[in-house]
């Protein structure tokens, strides 16, 4: 849950900084990060090589 909160804070931050063009890139990476972290902490996690 904390991670989603961070994600929304990040979006808000980019908005206040007027860096709209960074939003799509960050969305891709943040989504990837969340998927990876969630999958790593589940049962399937031990069968996925830690990518980075």
């Amino acid at each position: 849950m904390e991670r989603f909160r961070v994600f929304f804070q990040l979006m808000k931050y980019l908005w206040t900084r007027r860096k709209f063009w960074l939003i799509p890139i960050i969305v891709v990476f943040v989504f990837m990060g969340i998927v990876l972290v969630i999958s790593e902490s589940s049962v399937v996690g031990s069968f996925i090589y830690t990518l980075f």
Partner: peptide, 18 residues
Amino acid sequence: AIPLWVKNRLWISAEIKK
């Protein structure tokens, strides 16, 4: 840089709490 950020650095608050 990106892998480091996507994995830990952006999530420092979650990391601390966990």
